[in-house]
């Protein structure tokens, strides 16, 4: 496992979390390589979101190791420290700052100092317009940059949140159900976007939409009852009998 560890951007080993006796994660182990694109599937309650909570510091695991970038122990850090290490997260429900413009949402996300004192004294007036421009053009919201984020459609909010993630320039992006509420065309665009940013960033996508997962064309991990049920190509995973039983259906 040691070579796995040093080559990995995210390394989970025997992670368990229980809530009031319910085991949300049960000896969960899997490894994501640097720059890898990975899809996580699984039925409701399989532990997908809990896994993201553990990685981003929202939930502390009862036991097990969570290691980032080959050496950083994530179990002792909180959300903002983990975000500063270079892990970005998109929530299942799109979460943007409704009362600020699209541009300001991105500005707040752009990597750089985050302390309260620096923010009082002109911090980030030097953020290059280019960084914002770049993010805006990737998520195609350039024409709407002065709109309040709260006035965007559901799909546009999803994209804005992905844009904020990109502006953070993280090493690892955790993306929870990015295409929920999107039209087919938007779903295709999102798949294209995520495959294009993988490589430079590692991307872990949780999604139920199987045609979307197929479009991502990457390694798939299927979770069930807090542990890995199957892992491999989309074809091998979807042909797996147990995956069909618990998740895909016959």
């Amino acid at each position: 496992m040691t070579t796995d560890l040093t080559d990995s951007i995210l390394y989970l080993d025997a992670v368990s979390v229980s809530f009031d006796g319910f085991k949300a994660l049960n000896d969960l182990s899997f490894v994501v390589g640097r720059g890898e694109l990975r899809a996580i599937i699984g039925p409701n309650g399989a532990g997908k979101t809990t896994m993201m909570d553990v990685v981003t510091g929202k939930t502390r695991p009862d036991k097990g190791a969570v290691v980032f970038d080959g050496s950083v122990d994530l179990t002792t850090q909180d959300e903002s420290a983990i975000a500063s290490l270079g892990i970005g997260r998109k929530f299942q429900k799109p979460t943007v700052f409704d009362y600020q413009t699209v541009e300001d949402n991105l500005l707040l996300a752009v990597e750089g100092p985050r302390t309260a004192f620096s923010s009082l004294f002109g911090w980030r007036s030097k953020v290059t317009a280019y960084q914002i421009y770049e993010a805006l053009s990737i998520i195609r919201l350039g024409d709407l940059k002065y709109r309040l984020a709260g006035s965007l459609s559901h799909g546009q909010k999803q994209w804005l949140e992905i844009g904020m993630l990109l502006a953070q320039n993280p090493k690892l992006l955790l993306v929870d159900e990015p295409v929920a509420g999107m039209t087919d065309a938007e779903t295709e665009e999102t798949a294209r976007l995520l495959t294009s940013i993988a490589g430079e960033h590692a991307v872990v996508v949780v999604e139920h939409d199987m045609s979307f997962v197929r479009a991502l064309d990457c390694k798939v991990t299927c979770l069930h009852e807090g542990t890995v049920l199957a892992e491999g190509t989309i074809d091998s995973v979807s042909a797996n009998d147990r995956v069909i039983d618990v998740y895909l259906g016959r």
């Binding site: 981003t56 929202k58 959300e79 903002s80 975000a83 500063s84 970005g88 997260r89 929530f91 979460t95 943007v96 700052f97 409704d98 009362y99 600020q100 300001d104 500005l107 707040l108 996300a109 985050r114 309260a116 923010s119 904020m164 953070q168």
Partner: peptide, 17 residues
Amino acid sequence: QVLASIRDAESRTRFLG
């Protein structure tokens, strides 16, 4: 701006670092 972000979406602000 960060204050308003905290007011409107505290955990989002935290996950931005």
